[in-house]
């Protein structure tokens, strides 16, 4: 039989389900919101700050298991990863694009009121 290595254990998956659903806006990033350690993460933090919404961040540099597991959980290979209302929204490029065309603000406002 074929066994595939997975970084996403059932326990981690269920933890992530809980975590992403406990915050309206959650950013998995390199560093913290006060000390981003990568330009892409910093860009998304600045966008969220400018929208004046409460958001949580988690530093994936501090937890290699979380970092590898999240790539599978989101089916997304890089960080930052933005979650809105429990759903994966995108990485830096998608967030920038949605910020420019107003869709990000719209979606976050909707999430805040839900």
């Amino acid at each position: 039989s074929i066994r595939c290595f997975s970084a996403l254990s059932p326990q981690l998956k269920s933890t992530l389900d809980t975590v992403v659903n406990s915050h309206k806006v959650l950013l998995f990033m390199k560093g913290t919101k006060d000390f981003p350690q990568c330009g892409f993460s910093n860009t998304v933090v600045q966008i969220l700050k400018s929208l004046n919404v409460p958001f949580e961040t988690m530093n994936i540099l501090e937890n290699e298991t979380l970092r590898q597991g999240l790539k599978e959980y989101s089916s997304w290979p890089t960080f930052p990863q933005l979650y809105i209302d429990g759903e994966f929204f995108g990485g830096c490029d998608i967030t920038v694009e949605a910020y420019k065309n107003g869709q990000l603000q719209e979606l976050i406002e909707k999430a805040m009121c839900s």
């Binding site: 089916s75 997304w76 290979p77 890089t78 994966f88 929204f89 995108g90 990485g91 490029d93 998608i94 694009e97 949605a98």
Partner: peptide, 17 residues
């Protein structure tokens, strides 16, 4: 939509990523 498009690009570059 854009997220799916980016996923397609990421998948095409899975090995390089």
């Amino acid at each position: 939509r854009l997220l799916e498009r980016h996923r397609i690009v990421n998948a095409a570059l899975a090995e390089q990523m």
